[in-house]
Design a protein around this nucleic acid. Structure first.
Length: 896
RNA sequence: GGGCGAUUAGCUCAGUUGGUUAGAGCGCUGCCUUCACACGGCAGAGGUCACAAGUUCGAAUCUUGUAUCGCCCACCA
């Protein structure tokens, strides 16, 4: 065998990628049964995001498990998708092509965008915009594909999908329509969490708390028919004009007498009821809370509970809306909007925005003050209100107290969320929290404690899943509405598309039976302008990959899936919503296992992320260390554990690759001239060889068990430990002298068979982690074995059966006792500062009585390894129960 | 404030159901140019397992509490 002197990872990567592609070893076989398959719900990476080493890390984890399952004989379904749906792509297209989407515009089939266009953004229709997104992401997806391929991901590229492509849109819209029909989706108009910059509603899962400085302002409210004052503490004085009530705790003696009366807000002089409620905390602020529409979630709850009027002053763009204060108590003017009970029991805000009249005792003054804040952002309005209050001299009770408190933000947003009443679509989840927790329990989480995070999230949900987003690049909500003869949109008269027609864009396509010129006309129709939350589509990744909509048989074969790999940060979104969808559609769990990777932290233990500016880009790493070494680094981290980015580990990986290359080359060179047919387990007759195989058995057993439980890190550690220490450092050294025998003696045959069979097992145990070098080495000797496959990655995972014909060593302690003796002699040589190859004239070896026979059984190998002329083994007291040795070194030959 | 996780050698981490002197890699020190590999080998130094109390014949491992760090949730008057 003529083997190369050095291993070059780059060359090997190119060579084997081409080979794997050509032979199609990673292809899913559609004809195999579900039982024989292992099905993965791969996370589609956000293609417009930047790649960093964290991606290499977590994606490698999936591949370890998949490659193990493949070697276990499973038919692997390992698709790959691209998450190109949503805001990141939308922003990229806007910047790159200088366009903006205006949903109401008609589709222009001839529109062409130019890159780098200057000047004002060109307004285009939603359909045009989506088409541009499709174009832009092609390049991103190429870059990702390149990287995943090089990393050695064993994807079946025939199963590629994208979350915005036609199939995903069709699947997502189909899901929407099916759940609508089942009554699991409804439309409602109520206060929602609203981002004033993105101008869209968002869901609870997209919230992020941020600590912000604020100040308690102590503001005096008057009490009707009394000279007394009630002092309210508020961090949001700008909402004073939106105040609809004042609340105190029912048991609070200080305020008992006020309940039932009216308070009068300062500056605007709006009479509002003083009410009692348990939720008003006497300890907080002054114990008196003003209810505004809307300062926070509690305001919404009080507003609903007490049927308070709606005084919406914050607009969807974050500016203060125009309102008019009118004389209070003069009938006919009270046009505040209210919450109404619908026939189906839901509460709905009626006549939204129709009335912006607020009753005041002094409308002239109120209008004058409001005039200074109308149209301003909330922050400016706040300053102006405080200034006005200070100016009046009677409103401020005492100086403001500075505090910091958590404020809700959209996770991608820059300004706090507002609560704004709006018509949105929801998926019902509040009514099935218990069932959803139950579904989580049916799934195995790796690591296990992650299940609690899921359960806590579900238990803590306080609202249904808001599905609609007021954005452009996404899956359109497939609904049209009738418009009545007065031009009013009738939201309860929905027109739904047929399943066959999906996907549709209701803004550019007409419902059946209508023509385009009836759009937005009295008696005609209008399309729902919103798109679905990206999670509404991402949560269908199993159904998208399984072709649920198009091929029920195929879906049956793949669903529920075996494994969902993902980050723990998106348990509340991706994992949760996927569980929701699977439950709502099929009362099923989407997968049996979730495996959660940790994060990569920079050396300062901060999460690596683009916004922190501490990312390490992946390609140079692979260039420098090779894909195998990068994967090795990933494999050392257990699931769920955050890991710091440590370049030393890449070096260790590279060393392992080199060691495997060299050790393989050497080992194979030792048995190369013996026909493989002769190197069978039954030829392993020498005590040392049997002892070494006895050491291997538990390694195979434990690594297999660990891998079955998704603990790849443990499996690697076992294989690597055995390879380096037992195989290389000890066994190769001990057995190689026997392989130098000129005759094919029984001893040489036994050593060669051991070297080959153990090596053949070890290299397979490392194949899931370092697929390139193992494939390279495999090709040298084992690709033609009858019980193996051409590719190591299609060859069977090692089992004890392969060594069943090897008898156990005569002495149970053979290996340990032998190594103890070897170590003792090595120590003696090290103490004498001579080479390990230095000859020893005689050695008197003392071991525990029980080990004498064991050591004698391997003494010949020990002597040949350490060049010992004569050796005697005696029983005696030894420290640590191992071995001690007295050696007489041979005289050093005179230098020539 | 509630929950989850972590705390083991200078650094990065293993330590499976409590069991003899707590491990690995890197780094460090000394030695060995041994015919697979100097991207190597051998040997060595280095730890009161965060702290305290408890259970036990025996605790890094179990219980309780404390401290520090990380994450998630709640807290927005």
């Amino acid at each position: 065998m003529d083997l190369p002197k050095k291993y070059n990872p780059q060359d090997a990567e190119q060579k084997w990628l081409a080979s794997w592609d050509e032979t199609g070893i990673y292809k899913w076989d559609e004809t195999k049964s579900r039982d024989e398959s292992f099905v993965v719900d791969t996370p589609p990476p956000t293609v417009s995001g930047s790649l960093h080493v964290g991606h290499l890390f977590s994606y490698s984890h999936q591949d370890f498990i998949v490659r193990f399952q493949r070697m276990m004989g499973k038919n692997i379904f390992f698709p790959i998708g691209w998450d190109d749906n949503g805001l990141p792509t939308e922003r990229r297209v806007q910047n790159l092509l200088n366009v903006k989407c205006e949903a109401h515009l008609p589709y222009d089939p001839d529109f062409k965008a130019e890159r780098g266009k200057k000047g004002d953004a060109t307004p285009i229709s939603r359909k045009n915009f989506v088409e541009l997104c499709d174009e832009v992401i092609v390049d991103d997806e190429k870059a990702f594909k390149q990287l995943w391929t090089r990393l050695g991901m064993s994807y079946d590229w025939d199963q590629e999908y994208a979350t915005i492509n036609e199939h995903s849109r069709r699947t997502s819209q189909f899901s929407f329509l099916e759940l609508l029909e089942k009554g699991e989706i409804y439309q409602d108009e109520k206060p929602v969490m609203w981002d004033v910059d993105f101008q869209t509603a968002i869901a609870q899962a997209e919230l992020e708390d941020k600590e912000r400085p604020a100040a308690y302002n102590f503001i005096r409210f008057g009490v009707e028919g009394s000279d007394e004052k009630l002092v309210v503490a508020t961090t949001r004085p700008e909402l004073l004009p939106a105040c609809v009530a004042v609340l105190v705790h029912p048991e609070d003696e200080r305020f008992k007498d006020f309940v039932g009366k009216n308070a009068v807000s300062p500056l605007f002089e709006v009479p509002v009821p003083i009410m009692a409620d348990e939720k008003a905390d006497p300890e907080k602020g002054t114990g008196v809370v003003m209810v505004c529409t809307f300062g926070d979630q509690t305001d919404v709850e009080w507003w609903q509970a007490f049927k308070l009027p709606l005084r919406q002053i914050i607009g969807r763009d974050g500016h203060l809306l125009p309102v008019e204060f009118v004389k209070a108590g003069e009938g006919g003017h009270e046009k505040d909007t209210h919450l109404e009970k619908m026939e189906d029991g839901r509460d709905v805000v009626r006549s939204l925005g129709a009335a912006r009249m607020i009753p005041s005792l002094n409308p002239e003054k109120a209008n004058s003050i409001y005039g200074t804040i109308q149209g301003k952002y909330t922050k400016q309005a706040q300053k102006l209100i405080i200034a006005a209050a200070e100016e009046s001299g009677t409103v401020i009770d005492r100086p403001a107290e500075n505090i910091t408190h958590a404020v809700k933000f959209f996770e991608k947003g820059d300004r706090p969320l507002e609560l704004v009443p709006a018509r949105q679509w929801y998926t019902k989840i509040m009514d099935k929290k218990d069932e959803l927790v139950g579904q989580g329990r049916k799934i195995k989480w790796h690591p296990e404690y992650m299940e609690k995070r899921y359960a806590h999230w579900v238990e803590g949900l306080n609202q249904d899943w808001c599905l609609s987003r007021q954005r452009y690049f996404g899956v359109p909500i497939p609904v049209w509405y009738r418009i009545d003869e007065h031009g009013e949109v009738c939201y309860d008269q929905r027109i739904l598309p047929s399943v066959e027609s999906l996907p549709i864009d209701p803004l550019s396509e007409c419902p059946e039976g209508f023509t385009a010129d009836q759009r937005d006309q009295p008696g005609g129709f209008t399309g729902d302008p919103d798109v679905l939350d990206t999670w509404a589509t991402s949560s269908l990744s199993p159904q998208v990959a399984s072709q649920w909509v198009n091929d029920k048989g195929r879906h049956q074969k793949l669903f529920p899936m075996d494994m969902r790999p993902q980050g723990h940060d998106i348990i509340r979104t991706w994992a949760f919503y996927t569980i929701v969808k699977a439950y709502l559609h099929e009362k099923e769990v989407p997968w049996h296992n979730v495996v959660l990777s940790g994060w990569i932290l920079d050396p300062d233990r901060k999460k690596m992320s683009k916004s922190q500016g501490n990312v390490v880009t992946p390609e140079p790493l692979i260039d420098q260390f090779g894909a195998d070494a990068v994967r090795y680094w990933a494999a050392r981290a257990r699931l769920g554990v955050d890991t710091s980015f440590d370049e030393k580990v890449f070096k260790v990986g590279k060393k392992l690759v080199t060691k495997l290359f060299n050790a393989s080359k050497f080992a194979m060179g030792r048995f190369d001239d013996v026909p493989a047919e002769q190197l069978t387990p039954d030829k392993i007759t020498v005590e040392l060889d049997r002892a070494v195989i006895a050491e291997l058995r538990p390694v195979i057993e434990k690594a297999t068990a660990a891998f079955k439980e998704f603990d790849y890190a443990q499996a690697l550690s076992l294989a690597e430990g055995y390879f380096w220490s037992v195989y290389c450092d000890n066994y190769l050294e001990m057995a190689k002298q026997r392989t130098y025998d000129e005759e094919l003696t029984v001893g040489r045959l036994s050593a060669c068979a051991t070297l080959r069979l153990v090596h053949r097992a070890l290299v397979r145990m490392m194949a899931p982690f370092i697929p390139y070098i193992t494939e390279e080495v495999w090709g040298w000797a084992y690709a033609d074995d009858a019980d193996m496959a051409k590719s190591i990655h299609k060859s069977p995972w090692p089992t004890l059966d392969e060594f069943a014909a090897v008898e156990a060593p005569e002495h149970a302690t053979s290996y340990d006792a032998t190594v103890a003796v070897v170590d003792a002699i090595r120590r003696a040589k090290a103490d004498a500062a001579v080479s390990m190859a230095a000859p020893v004239e005689s050695a008197k070896i003392t071991v525990a009585a029980g080990n004498v026979a064991a050591v004698e059984a391997t003494l010949d190998d020990i002597q040949r390894m350490l060049k010992i002329e004569t050796a005697t083994v005696i029983a005696g007291e030894v420290e640590n129960g191992l071995a001690s040795v007295e050696t007489v070194l041979a005289p050093v030959p005179a230098a020539e």
